[in-house]
């Protein structure tokens, strides 16, 4: 149920984000979801794409520092309170969310959200127990 996310270290330098994205474009990979965390000095680009290993290799070859992390992709009812409900499940299970971001696309009527929690396995278990759809990685990569 774990989905691989690629994180890239970006210096706050003009054109660096574009260079990272161009590297991914050259590897012919289409980004499914992304987020950027930024500070005054640096940023972290997080990506979900069809072939994480290929993306990682391409980025490393171009001297980017890359890391692979496990995240959870959940289907969230696209209505008011949908995401809050998901987070309540995790909160009740005492699981901290490090960060989250959303997919642009929907899966049917549901919105897709990437979740990074402290511990992945218990989070998946808790979500499943509450009948929240956790999307398998194959399905995420083929979106």
């Amino acid at each position: 149920m774990k989905v691989k996310q690629i994180s890239v270290f970006l210096e706050n330098r003009k054109g660096r984000l574009q260079e990272a994205l161009e590297t991914i474009a050259a590897a012919k990979l289409s980004i499914r979801a992304l987020s950027i965390a930024d500070t005054a000095d640096f940023g972290i680009l997080r990506l979900i794409l069809p072939d994480p290993d290929k993306a990682k290799k391409a980025l490393q070859k171009n001297n980017f520092t890359v890391r692979e992390n496990d995240v959870i992709v959940v289907e969230v009812p696209d209505k008011p309170g949908g995401l809050a409900g998901v987070l309540k499940v995790l909160n009740d299970a005492n699981i901290n969310v490090e960060y989250l971001y959303a997919f642009v696309e929907k899966s049917g009527k549901k919105a897709l959200v990437v979740l990074r929690t402290e511990k992945i396995e218990p989070a998946v278990k808790a979500l499943r127990k509450a009948d929240i759809e956790v999307m398998p990685s194959e399905k995420v990569y083929s979106l």
Partner: peptide, 15 residues
């Protein structure tokens, strides 16, 4: 230089 060893995908950790 942020090497592979010290890089993390969390701002908090990098800071």
């Amino acid at each position: 230089e942020a090497s592979k060893e010290i890089f993390s995908d969390e701002v908090r950790h990098l800071e």
